[in-house]
């Protein structure tokens, strides 16, 4: 099945849309159909692969890139509206 999102690293909890994904349509990551998008996701934007709790880190390229400022559900859009940069003094390893 043709993918519409890519996951780069095994440890990632987000995938990135390769084309716009409409709310309710299937998310296909690296050829595997996972679930339906919970909201509209723009091309090159991130989508949660699993539920992410507030304060939990978001992983892309296998590394923490931001932390959630509120609970994010599976299939939801992940961006600056529900995350923030990880404070420099926090232990990101």
């Amino acid at each position: 099945m043709k993918s519409n999102a890519l996951k780069v690293n095994q440890n990632d909890n987000v995938a990135v849309a390769t084309e716009p994904i409409r709310k309710g349509s299937p998310v296909v990551v690296n050829g595997e159909r996972l679930y339906d998008a919970a909201e509209d996701i723009g091309a090159s934007h991130k989508i949660a692969l699993a539920a992410i709790a507030a304060g939990e880190k978001v992983f892309r390229y296998g590394e923490p890139i931001v932390e959630a400022t509120k609970a994010i559900g599976q299939g939801e859009w992940v961006h600056v509206h529900n995350t923030r940069p990880i404070p420099p003094d926090s232990d990101s390893a």
Binding site: V8, V16, A43, H45, Y61, V66, V78, H79, P85
Partner: peptide, 18 residues
């Protein structure tokens, strides 16, 4: 960058150093 879906400078730079 933000319009393009990047949420932090770390995410942007990881895309480069990958």
């Amino acid at each position: 960058n933000i319009d393009g879906g990047l949420s932090s400078i770390t995410e942007k730079s990881l895309g480069c150093i990958t």
